[in-house]
Computed example of a mutant assay.
Amino acid sequence: MTTTRPPHPDPASPRGPGPHAPGEPRERGQSPVGRAFQVLRCLVESGDDWGVRELANHLGMPPSAAHRALGMLEDEGAVRRDPATGRYLLGFDFLRLARVATDSFPLWRAARPMLQELVGRRDETALMNIYDYQRMELFVAACVESTQPIRYTEQLHKWLPVHAGATGLAILAFLCEADRERVLDQRGLPALTERTVPDRETLDRALERIRADGYAVSRGQRVPGAAAIAAPIFDRHRVIGDIALTIPDFRYPEDHLEEVAADVISCARAVSAAHGANG
Rank of each mutant, 00 (worst) to 15 (best):
F174R: 00
F174P: 01
L175H: 05
L175K: 01
C176W: 12
C176L: 10
C176D: 15
C176R: 14
E177Q: 09
E177A: 12
A178Y: 14
A178H: 15
R180F: 03
R180W: 11
R180H: 03
E181M: 11
E181F: 05
E181I: 07
E181S: 12
E181V: 07
R182V: 07
R182T: 08
R182Y: 06
R182E: 04
R182I: 08
V183C: 05
V183D: 00
L184R: 00
D185G: 11
D185M: 11
D185Q: 15
D185I: 13
Q186T: 14
Q186W: 01
R187I: 03
G188Q: 06
G188N: 10
G188R: 04
G188V: 06
L189R: 06
P190F: 06
A191V: 00
A191S: 15
A191F: 10
A191C: 05
L192W: 11
L192M: 11
T193L: 03
E194V: 10
R195M: 02
T196G: 05
V197P: 00
D199N: 15
R200G: 11
R200I: 14
R200L: 15
E201K: 15
E201A: 14
E201F: 07
T202V: 14
T202G: 03
L203Q: 04
D204M: 12
D204G: 08
D204F: 05
R205F: 01
R205C: 01
L207C: 12
L207A: 04
E208G: 15
E208D: 15
E208R: 14
R209G: 05
I210C: 02
I210A: 01
R211Q: 12
A212Y: 01
A212W: 00
D213R: 02
D213F: 02
D213T: 03
D213Y: 07
Y215M: 06
Y215K: 07
A216R: 01
A216S: 15
A216F: 06
A216H: 07
A216K: 02
A216E: 04
V217L: 12
S218W: 06
R219P: 06
R219E: 14
R219T: 13
R219V: 14
G220F: 11
G220T: 08
G220N: 09
Q221C: 13
R222C: 04
R222L: 15
V223C: 10
P224H: 09
P224K: 11
G225D: 09
G225L: 11
A227T: 09
A228M: 12
A228P: 03
A228C: 11
I229D: 03
I229G: 05
I229E: 09
A230V: 10
A230E: 06
A231W: 02
A231N: 11
